[in-house]
Nucleic acid binder design. Structure first.
Length: 215
DNA sequence: ATCCCGAGGG
DNA sequence: CCCTCTGGAT
């Protein structure tokens, strides 16, 4: 039976430069980019953020902007009304509660508009190098296909199981390895099962059977 | 459980 | 056409 460490070793070989692909120059920009990335490809986010940050480079300008100007800048990605409201309100909170800085604690981060546990984990990991496992659509799917979590586990349970099975010093890298594997190889539709090194342990069929039952 | 919500791929 | 994209708030 393959160990979790061996899975990660294999993924390191396949994706030696797995990293955060959201363009950002500072914690504020990453925070906003991650909020924008909900249910949206990071490629799409990277197309709108340069112009967005040129107009609104910091919490103060973002907080004082006309909401419609923010909406126009991000219209091409989905859920743009909610996201515009979130990043403006989040910017206001950064000014009033955190002296204009992005906080580091889970509690403070998730107090911000549009910031849930997944977004907070990404910011903590990438900006502050705090060991974290952010469970998004890719990490959830990969974890279940590789049998690291049960098909019926919630994202919270998936996070707990990954943290238990993966050495703490590998958490941050493991997250991006799963993202790259899920984004470029073990995709939701038409994954490259033919040349996959994990065929013998894959729970893909089981996961799909479970999902079909519950709809 | 539902809504938000455009763009790109198959 | 249908599915998916680094979810969160109600």
């Amino acid at each position: 039976m393959i160990t979790t460490d061996e899975i990660l070793d294999q993924l390191e070989i396949m994706f030696p430069d797995a990293h955060c692909e959201l363009i950002h120059k500072n914690p504020f920009e990453l925070l906003v980019a991650v909020v924008l990335s909900a249910q949206t490809t990071d490629n799409a986010v990277n197309k709108v953020t340069p112009a967005l940050f040129e107009s609104f480079p910091d919490p103060k300008t973002m907080a004082n902007a006309d909401i419609k100007d923010i909406e126009d800048k991000i219209k091409r990605i989905g859920l743009y009304r909610n996201k515009a409201r979130s990043i403006q309100n989040l910017s206001k909170s950064l000014l009033t509660s955190f002296d204009g800085n992005v906080p580091q604690s889970m509690k403070d981060l998730t107090s911000l508009a549009g910031v849930g546990r997944k977004t907070a984990n990404v910011v903590r990991s990438v900006c502050f190098d705090i060991p974290s496992i952010a469970v998004d659509t890719h990490v959830e799917r990969i974890s279940k296909r590789l049998g690291l979590a049960k098909v019926y586990d919630s994202v919270e349970v998936v996070e707990q199981k990954l943290k238990r099975k993966i050495k703490r010093e590998r958490w941050n890298k493991a997250h991006h390895l799963f993202i790259f594997f899920g984004r470029y190889f073990c995709t939701a539709r038409n994954p490259q099962c033919n040349n996959c090194p994990f065929q013998n342990i894959c729970k893909k069929e089981k996961l799909e059977k479970y999902k079909n039952q519950n709809k």
